[in-house]
Design a binder for these strands. Sequence first.
DNA 1: GATGAATGAGGTTTCATTCAT
DNA 2: GATGAATGAAACCTCATTCAT
Lengths: 227, 227, 227, 227
Amino acid sequence: MTQHKYYKDAFDRVDDSRKNKLLEIAIDEFASKGFKNANINIIAKNAGISIGLMYKYFATKDDLFITCLKYGMTKLEHSLNDIMLSDDRLLVKTEKLIRTICSHSKKYSKYISLYNEVGAEKGTSERTRLMVEEIETKRSSIYIETITKAFENKDVRADLDPKLFAFFLDNLLTMLQFSYTCDYYRERFLIYTGIDIDEADEEMIISQLLKFIESAFTVSHEELKNL
Amino acid sequence: MTQHKYYKDAFDRVDDSRKNKLLEIAIDEFASKGFKNANINIIAKNAGISIGLMYKYFATKDDLFITCLKYGMTKLEHSLNDIMLSDDRLLVKTEKLIRTICSHSKKYSKYISLYNEVGAEKGTSERTRLMVEEIETKRSSIYIETITKAFENKDVRADLDPKLFAFFLDNLLTMLQFSYTCDYYRERFLIYTGIDIDEADEEMIISQLLKFIESAFTVSHEELKNL
Amino acid sequence: MTQHKYYKDAFDRVDDSRKNKLLEIAIDEFASKGFKNANINIIAKNAGISIGLMYKYFATKDDLFITCLKYGMTKLEHSLNDIMLSDDRLLVKTEKLIRTICSHSKKYSKYISLYNEVGAEKGTSERTRLMVEEIETKRSSIYIETITKAFENKDVRADLDPKLFAFFLDNLLTMLQFSYTCDYYRERFLIYTGIDIDEADEEMIISQLLKFIESAFTVSHEELKNL
Amino acid sequence: MTQHKYYKDAFDRVDDSRKNKLLEIAIDEFASKGFKNANINIIAKNAGISIGLMYKYFATKDDLFITCLKYGMTKLEHSLNDIMLSDDRLLVKTEKLIRTICSHSKKYSKYISLYNEVGAEKGTSERTRLMVEEIETKRSSIYIETITKAFENKDVRADLDPKLFAFFLDNLLTMLQFSYTCDYYRERFLIYTGIDIDEADEEMIISQLLKFIESAFTVSHEELKNL
DNA sequence: GATGAATGAGGTTTCATTCAT
DNA sequence: GATGAATGAAACCTCATTCAT
């Protein structure tokens, strides 16, 4: 639950524009080559600093990665917050959510690429646990809170569990993000739909996903009779 | 679309039980350490063959990985086929699908771990493209075909696109698989639901997901009036 | 023979308590990690001064080490002087010497640890030569002088060479010091005696060592016959 | 007590002359630069093998060092065994011991240099403990056993403890070894005696040390009176 | 077919020292 | 006097792949 700081004090003292530049360059490298293939010597060189200074800022390659990840995740979080704390009905919120995911995915595809990479990490369970916590705790609680309220307003089918509802909803959004940003999932989208997602009609995707969530199947006959 | 063969002829001549043993051992290594950290020399040692022979079977580490991946993917495909080609209504098929995903995830978690890893691969776009094709083409076409039929039977809301419907459905199932099998997504499930997925009530998850897909939101008043 | 000064003038101008604090902290680091693994940046940080200032005081890490070493060696020298310049017979002096070594070893184990390290230094023969001279010249001359006097008083077996006698005596005392203070030699003591030296009966060790040396002083059979 | 093996199986398969060559070259490097400054890439290059193969033989630099150390220690052990198991009286054995130490020190000075280095190691207490055990256990037990027998034969003053006697005796021999082989202690010998130990009259040193120890064996005045 | 010894480029991390302020 | 950001060479260790037998 404690939010750790994965960089050293020296990095705090760097002015913001250099800080951001460094992180963006690191994110470029991580997003294009993956964690293991990324080379911190190259990151340092591209950022115009010595490798020694790099290690004055970040104790390990891991820490640099996590800092990049959190930097990226923060950007989306703010937009999500704004949406979820509004007074709209859940359906409207969901639409806004999807729109934000779409535009964010285009703008910040590299950040999502990092997030995607974390999801594939093996064999470092303690680090993984920390990272999940850092990333998912806030996001999940915003979702769950909002959805719980929606239940009180009878915006949602009563026999659904708010937590699982939030989970399924985020699953759909996450996979949509990956489809916009990660090589494999972009190809997969192409195979499913026949369309390159970059050239897809975004409005169509949004409306289709909204309908899918809203009511994928038509109400069953039995239920209708009972109305 | 061409189905490549990522091993050498010599591997064809090995008898099946040794073939499977070798692949299972390789899958163990890949699933527990990830592709880059897996060590092909150790795989050979664990499998009881020399590294030289390993290279008589597979030209590169990549090829070994892909062969493992396809080996694992084939197992699920058969079950899916059986379900999708049945005469059930889509809702019933979907339930069967989810059940299969759940049980498969427990039994074959390592195979899914490999699949998950592929989704995070960077910077090898041609290889990635080939792998997506190998894996997703068959699966997606089964989904789409089935769902298109369901549309004809009016089992599905008419204003949904079958391809996107298939895509969204598979997204939900894929994320459920990951939640059963991959470190990160297991933790994420715990954070969303408060439950360790291994100790979760599977029937509850199945029924909730089914409801979510079936009709996440209650039918709106307007729509009801128009019935 | 010239007593060098291994620090810069700026260090002379620092007041004594800060000087001592700095040296004690450096000694801590050197004694716990060894010269090569000790980190001069960390020493500066622990001492509360900047690394820049550190280099205003000491030209190199080597110089800092030597200054620490001499600082530590000085402390024992004074006690030895007092003993050796007294009027006691050699046997009494030797007992006092051993007692002093024991208590000093407990109190100043870190200084001895530095001394022990110097004995293992390789490949810097000129520096080594200088350091031996700095450390051993005074000590050896006190020993030799005292023992030469003892020879005149017939306190010592006549057919022994005073210089070698002093050398052997100091060897025994040095190894006893190491046994009290250095990881390896502490373990070695345990293996030889079955006792952890910290829990050993100090009086027993003293009396045994004294007896071991003492008989060296008593006349031999032949000499006895000639009395 | 278990004697570990600090090299990998692959090293066992190397033929003896190459094994010895490799170890001698590594010992050269360690003895001349010390453990930390020694460079295994250089050792590999000098030995005419690749660094990769080096790591097929030894898991770590540490392991290579320990293997070198044990290789060197074994050589002296055999000579000591022969002497100590003979039927000579302790005084004769001791003389042989000193002679062996002297000649061994000249021949194998590098091995002793390694041993000396271990005695100065800091902060790796578990590794240190293992190494002490490996090296000192056998040697100390041979000493103690022999000396205990000598006590039964009344070769030694009765009020001395055999374990401490062995300990003091080995201390003198160890320091003599260092004086022959280690930079610092060679200089120290020069300062004490005024003689470069390489040009010293070895017979004189031997006889002086023997006398220094010897009197320890003769009975004390009191005891003489009681005869 | 089968072996496994051998390669060596490549990547992370450390730290004594400098120098502009 | 005092600071501490910045440097960058240097060292350990990994592992996919080759090839002589």
